[in-house]
Design a protein around this nucleic acid. Sequence first.
DNA 1: CGCTGTCTTGAGTCGGATCAAGATTAGTGG
DNA 2: CCACTAATCTTGATCCGACTCAAGACAGCG
Lengths: 275, 275
Amino acid sequence: MIRCIGASAGGTASGGGALGQRDRHLQYDSPGQPRIGAQANPLTTKLEQFVCFTADEILALDRLTNTAKFLLAGQDLIREGERPEQISLIVSGMACRYKLLADGRRQILALLIPGDLCEVEFGRFSWPDHSIALLGDALISSVSFAQLAGLRVQYPRFDRALSLSELIETATLREWLLNLGQRNAMQRIGHLFCELRVRLRAIGHLHDDGSFDLPINQAVLADITGLTTVHVNRTLQRLRAEGLIELKQRRLVIRQPEKLVELCGFDDNYLRVAR
Amino acid sequence: MIRCIGASAGGTASGGGALGQRDRHLQYDSPGQPRIGAQANPLTTKLEQFVCFTADEILALDRLTNTAKFLLAGQDLIREGERPEQISLIVSGMACRYKLLADGRRQILALLIPGDLCEVEFGRFSWPDHSIALLGDALISSVSFAQLAGLRVQYPRFDRALSLSELIETATLREWLLNLGQRNAMQRIGHLFCELRVRLRAIGHLHDDGSFDLPINQAVLADITGLTTVHVNRTLQRLRAEGLIELKQRRLVIRQPEKLVELCGFDDNYLRVAR
DNA sequence: CGCTGTCTTGAGTCGGATCAAGATTAGTGG
DNA sequence: CCACTAATCTTGATCCGACTCAAGACAGCG
């Protein structure tokens, strides 16, 4: 659990390792192309759950992701109270919305995955009540508020799809509240894993064996679930011992999805939308 | 804590007492006029935090509240999965968004107070992932989706104000998540009280001495805070013993607001909006 | 090979849950 | 106005899930 109030949210200070981290990153995601770059535009994939796009629209959305930049783990995309200049689109990697308490405790409010837009809600009229940090190195492209507004006007289907995905984001927030309020440690963690599996599948980020990358350490897991690192560790061990999951090297396999779903009362309804 | 899965959410089954309850209600809110009816339109009051309305707009909004109907405590305004026909505007009374677990446990996701609109988000494209129930008898007026859409087009200021209040509702949801994830029982309950004081003040529902009506029993408080009824009871007693609050007859006095704010780390920022 | 994150493990404690009665209070009916 | 009833609030005893503190074990990287 991160107890430092400072900027670095992805780990207890990246220290002087900024350069080192970049090296590691390039090495990790190489050779040459960023691994995810070869895949379809995650924004398109995500929104096509809700609407059908024309070739025109797909091209316009692709243009958004062309300009993605590498950013290093732990960096803040927006900070509580500071009005953002631009909207960030996650092209690859993961980020989280979070809030800090005065004593340094952190609650993660949402996980953002490829295809998610960050600051849509903070237009001309509002400032953020929370921060957003990268959980691992990431590819981020920036979109100006004006540019996005233009696209929404020009492409009503895109506009509708975005609205729907905002609805789902809010529904997810509600489900997380239920998670923290009513479920125990095993269920909380299990529920998160079930949710991530559905969301990552929707953007084509499951591996062939159904597993997925989870660039997250146990301290982050603790900040998501409102538990301590120690208890997360012990709970993961129980989940492993019961043959429900495998988790190592930042990759998660859900061994018995039906059992896990039942254990934590997961129902993916809140991730869907009518029509 | 409500452990029955059925419809009645305000108490463990209103039993055969429906008629009796209506009688009680009339007696309580009489003579003649509903108590709140004399006050300003709560929707207007609420939205005027964000924008200035013309006389025209105020009239249009007043027309929305003219048709309010009495509804009895415990009734569901919408039920998870059933697409609502209309939008409900709370004119007086309180309601809550909630979700039920298979075993009957309930998590309350939001409190709705006068001036709050219920099903705005469930337009043509979505169905509710949760239910909404009345916590006490209430005055509710119904607005059709078309009617509301019309007003938003006709009165852009109204449209903007509604969008802003939706932003605040989402920010509140995030703050509740922080509450459940990181704060202890005293802080959770205290934080809720602080929040309510700010929200009720904004719609002119504080009494002269700063107290306010809280039509909520300890079981409901438990479902909001993710605690048990017993523990809520004991925690309230501690809050009383420390001279922080007084709570009886469904009326809450915060005796030492600054102290309570400090105890639970309350910051009303999330209830506000820029500009 | 040594650092630094990260993950594990153990022992002890505590906040909050559970179970089971009572005590109040408010609404109902006579 | 009083007795009856059902909700609601209180209290006590006990238990357990999760927290705390403190070390140690790995693993990846320089």
